[in-house]
Amino acid sequence: MMQQPPISGEDIIVSLNRIRLEYGDVTALDDVHLQIRTGEFFTLLGPSGCGKTSLLQLIGGFQDPTYGAVFIDGKDVTRVPPYARPVNTVFQNFALFPHMTVAGNIRFGLEMLGWPRAKADRRVAEVLELVGLAGFGTRFPQELSGGQQQRTALARALGPEPRVLLLDEPMSALDLKLRKEMQGELARLHREAGITFIMVTHDQEEALSLSDRIAVLRYGKLRQVASPEELYHRPANSFVADFLGEANLIPAELLNDGPATGVIMVRPEAVTVRPGAGRVSGVVTERRFLGRGYELTVTHVTGLMLHCLEPSWEPLSLGQVVHLDWDDSAQLWLEQ
């Protein structure tokens, strides 16, 4: 069946049309429809097993979809092998060729593309400079630290000047401190290289801080595609609300006023404690001092636990009955 590229006014670089991917009787991706804009930093976010890596493999050409089509730059590449796609991947654990030097690793893709020797050498030096590894070209991957290996993997993928850079959990092999450093580095590279980045991660903080837009996946289905701000403040459903940051999800029938069906979401920082009347009441069951205030856990009579952040001047004791309130603008109705 012929699939038409999506018609869109925006500058779309990667387009996934109604993708379905099955492994035997397991459905890894289910009707995924997604468009990624040229130049943006796009992140696929979700818990492990949600299908985000499969999605990246489909774009890279390492998987064939069971149904649906992949477009890169307006061309249908669904059946095009990876070596003919203008995308490069930074692999999880880097996948550096152990029998080639750093420069050899970077030069490999350029050689495969048939770049003339001199031009390739210039490009190798250029990307080594770009990732801050100038002078490391003659080393072998095994002689590098984790961070340097990460930079080499980035340099290798950026070398052939791909239209799209795919990053498969690029930070997962690094320790926490290095991860923070490399996040800054990635943001800089994205600005300087000026190409589209598509990253897979399960780290919500990483996704929120780096991305222009984020797609949240669960069980092989897209749950929401939006900017970090919108995802956080206007989650489309309770899964997204709960997955990104902390959220109080309250069945509407528990509220003192309001309709009897549906769920509302309210972030802990928007909740205030009132001694008198409020929207919902409960007993303080946990209290953690954070310096700027207290984090309270308030348990409703039904057992539902609610979280709120409370300025420190109002010390509340455990077991005390409190009433919680918030602005209308802070609450969000969610579909179930």
Binding site: F62, Y83, F97
Partner: peptide
Amino acid sequence: IDPRVIDAGFDLYARRWQVFTRIILPL
């Protein structure tokens, strides 16, 4: 051999036989 190394070869525009001669065979 880390299988991702082979994927990386394909990703970097090597054909089947190039992946074989340049990556699999040396390893």
